Amino acid sequence: MAEHCDRLAAEGRFISGEGLKPSREGYRVHFNQGREPVVVDGPFAEARELVAGFSIIEAASMDDAVAWVKQWPAEDAAGQAEIEVRPLGCPGGLSNFGDPAEDDSRRPRFMVMLKANPRSETDWNPGPEILGRMAEANRAGAEAGYLIAGNGLSSSRHARRVRFSKGHPQVFDGPFAEIKEMVAGFWVLRVDSIDDVIAWARTYPFPDGDEARLEIRPLYSMEELLAPLA
Rank of each mutant, 00 (worst) to 15 (best):
C5H: 09
C5E: 10
D6T: 04
A10G: 01
G12C: 09
F14R: 05
F14A: 13
S16E: 09
E18V: 09
G19C: 13
L20G: 03
P22I: 00
R24C: 14
E25F: 07
F31I: 06
N32K: 14
F44I: 03
E49L: 15
V51K: 05
V51I: 15
F54K: 04
F54W: 04
S55G: 05
S55P: 00
I57P: 01
I57D: 04
A59T: 00
D63L: 13
Q71G: 07
P73H: 04
E75P: 00
A81K: 08
P87G: 06
G93L: 09
D99F: 08
P100K: 09
A101N: 10
V112D: 14
V112Q: 13
L114N: 01
A116R: 07
S120D: 07
S120I: 07
T122F: 13
T122G: 12
W124P: 00
P128G: 14
G132Q: 06
A135K: 04
R139G: 01
A140P: 00
A140H: 02
G141N: 05
A144T: 03
G145F: 01
N151L: 14
R157V: 04
A159K: 07
A159T: 00
R163V: 10
R163N: 02
D173Q: 14
G174N: 11
F176T: 03
F176D: 06
F176Q: 03
A177N: 05
I179W: 15
I179N: 12
M182N: 06
F186G: 07
L189T: 04
L189F: 11
V191K: 14
D195W: 10
V197F: 13
A199P: 08
R202T: 05
T203P: 02
P205H: 12
P205D: 11
D210R: 09
D210S: 09
L214Q: 00
R217L: 15
E223T: 02
E224A: 09
L226Q: 11
A227G: 06
A227N: 10
P228M: 07
L229H: 06
L229M: 14
A230C: 10
